[in-house]
Nucleic acid binder design. Sequence first.
DNA 1: ACATATATTTCAGATTATGAACTATTCAAG
DNA 2: CTTGAATAGTTCATAATCTGAAATATATGT
Lengths: 158, 158
Amino acid sequence: MSDDVSARLGRLSPEIQAMMGVYALYWKLEESFDSIETDLSHQECHMLIKLDAPKRMGVLAADMLTVPSTITATADALEQAGYLTRQRDPEDRRAWLLVLTEQGEEARNMLVATAGELFRSASGLNSDETAVFARLARKIRDNIVKTGIPEGLKKCDS
Amino acid sequence: MSDDVSARLGRLSPEIQAMMGVYALYWKLEESFDSIETDLSHQECHMLIKLDAPKRMGVLAADMLTVPSTITATADALEQAGYLTRQRDPEDRRAWLLVLTEQGEEARNMLVATAGELFRSASGLNSDETAVFARLARKIRDNIVKTGIPEGLKKCDS
DNA sequence: ACATATATTTCAGATTATGAACTATTCAAG
DNA sequence: CTTGAATAGTTCATAATCTGAAATATATGT
């Protein structure tokens, strides 16, 4: 019985091919990050890139699909290194806004530019292909962020 | 001077959009993996999926963009759990071939099927879009595997 | 005011990944 | 055939990372 099943699954479905590509790209990019910014951890790079504008930590946690305590640790490191400051959100004084300093802005600009190059050289796609890929990637991301945390069922109260 | 620069970089380039999508998808998929296979680590899942045929550990290391010692640990765990066996490669008796057991095959089939569904629900893409995305993802992966380890400069002897 | 919900922090513990040193085998050369 | 260098994988101790539960501070509703 396992014959046809394994034969069918053996040829990789588009979904698996897509996943393998995504994993390879993710791993490659993570590896490449090591070689450019020795004083920033990966998570710190990710946070910097996300901070195109001041954001609340909870928003970042949802955005980066991680838990608050991780955001705290990452923000601590970036704050200590002078890349950002915490400011109380005037709309809700329980929350902090993470705001990049000038130094943080510069680091972010550098990172964004470098990350773009990393993508180009890692992917090997031309600009047309990149545009197509980016459009779909964006659609995927929108879907995930919209779908949100449900799969993880964090703090599921039902 | 930082005005135009940050303005230019502020609107995200296709490359960054692509990367953010890739990261979101990767994180989401990793998170989802937790909820289906409690007795397998992520790395173990990845290895199972890669083992569509017997492979040498070194090949897997290159394929999974990781170091040999990680492959050893992962293979140990899978072997102990009965999912695979080590067999000497007749062509080079220094090397092992990792061969899935029947149980391993079953686990792999389940994983591949489940992973496909995870991709579908996480991405929200229809099948046409998935096909396009998969084609590009595959192209990217080919490029990365072909490019290989150079970026990391592991064991650079020059 | 009071009870409850939310935003973030603290911290200790678990998991995971990694590199350097080691064993076994192969390969090339003399 | 034996020696030396290269390669495949292993071991192990260490470091980096992540998380979840309990705690603090503020907000919201009654």
